[in-house]
Amino acid sequence: MESLVIPVLILLLAGAAVLLMARALGRRTAGARASTAKADSARTSTATAGGTALPGDPAERARAAAAKLTEDQHRRLYALIAQGQAMAAIKLYYEASGDGLRASRDAVGALAAHPQPFHSAAPEAAEPDDDDTPQRFPYRYRAIASKGDVTREVSSNMLNDEIYGRIRTLARSGDTEAAATALTRHSDISMKQAREFIALLDD
């Protein structure tokens, strides 16, 4: 009986040692996971401030920040930066952009490190003027002008009532050269023929 007690005690001690080692290993693994999660959380909070993701490149961050400012805000912000009033600059950017405080602080730091010129919004493309880009219509329009016994006619598929009305208005207002130029753009006649035609409309 005594011969069995010693092996049993050895087995119990070995089992206890294995359990202790397993627990220690489990704690170490849990600590490592917690440390990794904390580091990831810190990186995430650094990358996002005020709920807005910030560009990683400082120069790109400065460009993105400058795009949120009006011309007056841009001028005032750089005046504050030049005067060393960092807190006032952050407050101005915070109010102008709607970003969080941390994002505003980072944005002002990027703007200070990478000065950005002000870029206004691109102006909308102007609609082409009828006089500059004549449209060809599927019909030929006949314009007739007469004075006394003299009559002139212009037939063109680049004229219509609206365009011819503008030409007549120019002629009757005394701007005969502009009227003649417009007529040549909307027809195939020469400038001399256009002036002769317009001369019949200028009264």
Rank of each mutant, 00 (worst) to 15 (best):
D40Q: 11
S41L: 15
T44D: 08
T44A: 15
A49F: 00
G51Q: 03
A53M: 15
P55I: 11
G56I: 15
A59R: 12
E60H: 00
R61K: 06
A64F: 07
A65Q: 01
T70V: 04
T70Q: 14
E71Y: 02
D72R: 02
Q73K: 03
H74N: 13
L77I: 08
L77R: 01
Q83K: 15
G84T: 12
Q85G: 14
Q85R: 14
A86S: 12
A89V: 08
L92K: 01
L92A: 02
L92P: 00
L92Y: 01
Y93Q: 07
Y93S: 02
Y94F: 13
Y94T: 01
Y94P: 01
S97T: 03
G98R: 11
G100T: 08
L101K: 13
A103V: 02
A103H: 03
S104F: 02
V108C: 05
V108P: 00
A112F: 04
A112R: 15
A113L: 10
A113V: 11
A113E: 08
H114N: 10
P117W: 00
P117R: 03
H119L: 14
A121V: 11
A121H: 08
A122C: 06
A122V: 12
P123R: 09
E124R: 14
A126M: 14
D129L: 06
D130I: 01
T133D: 14
T133A: 06
Q135T: 15
P138D: 15
R140C: 10
R140V: 08
A143H: 04
I144A: 11
A145E: 10
S146P: 05
K147T: 10
G148Y: 11
V150M: 03
T151F: 03
T151R: 12
R152S: 11
E153Q: 10
E153M: 05
V154D: 03
S155K: 06
S155Y: 00
N157H: 07
N157K: 07
M158S: 07
M158V: 00
L159R: 00
N160Y: 08
N160H: 00
N160E: 06
D161R: 02
E162S: 10
Y164P: 06
G165P: 03
G165C: 06
R166P: 00
A171Y: 01
R172G: 13
R172Y: 04
G174R: 09
T176V: 15
A179C: 10
T181K: 14
A182R: 04
